[in-house]
Amino acid sequence: MELFIDHVTKQYKDKTAVNDVTLSLTPGIWGLLGANGAGKTTLMRMIAGIQRPDRGRICYDAISIDVLKGAYRSIFGYLPQEFGFYPEFTVLDYLEYMAALKGLGKPMRSERIALLMEQLSLKGLERKPIRKLSGGMKRRVGIAQALLNDPEVLLLDEPTSGLDPGERIRFRNLISEFAQDRIVLISTHIVPDVEFIASNNIIMKQGTVIAEGASRELASAIEGSVYTAVIPAEDLHRVEDRTRVINLRNLETGQVEVRYLSEDQPLPGSTPCEPRLEDYYLWLFPEEGGEDGC
């Protein structure tokens, strides 16, 4: 099972959204990381067959998806970044509608819907109109529809946006379990969502793949450049000027614990750390900044 993206390019009027991207996706979870505007969504939409590449082609098991057409769509699940529901539909109506579109027979349909409602903590919401659901609940309904046909290829574009921390953990567990012998591509800019579950990561910048590999493998590129240090709160600005702060935590003592990147001399009293994918990501995208208060 292989999804092969072969020298794919997509150009909008004055911008190259995806530039000559070649990837070979095999079973497992793939994290697709990049800042906003990096070309992740365009790449996802081309893999989903919604947009056609200007150059290059996308093949599933060596056959172009343009040739496979319905056969490809039948083994495929997709959750776009932004998507519309029918507000008057209940959760059950919507999932039944999507199941019918995915060609699921009636008995199979009920069975799959019941299972996914359970797995995504949607039980009890069957009769609730979608317009009355919270953002996180809507997202879960979106994930449920993507999984309805038990797809071989699953594309999830920012699947965790709007989910609370508990839901994000449940989502990660569900996807890890689901990904056996399947290709799962998760586009996100929230690195921890894929860091520990993705077998491989693809990092995009300005339409190009700038790095590809397992989390540990990628992070090793900044081996010896990640440190933690405890500093007085008043020194924080000075430290931020000298280093690239990834994370900081206020201590009860009035001091601040910082995790930072430094390729030169570390701050006095710093302890070297094992780099993580998030460190590497922030090293590549300094404009993204770190998370406060962790």
Partner: peptide, 19 residues
């Protein structure tokens, strides 16, 4: 057109009967 606008169409056209 409303499905194009809301993005509902993106999901539907990726299904086996979505064309």
């Amino acid at each position: 057109s409303l499905d194009y606008e809301t993005g509902a169409d993106d999901i539907q056209r990726c299904t086996v009967h979505g064309m």
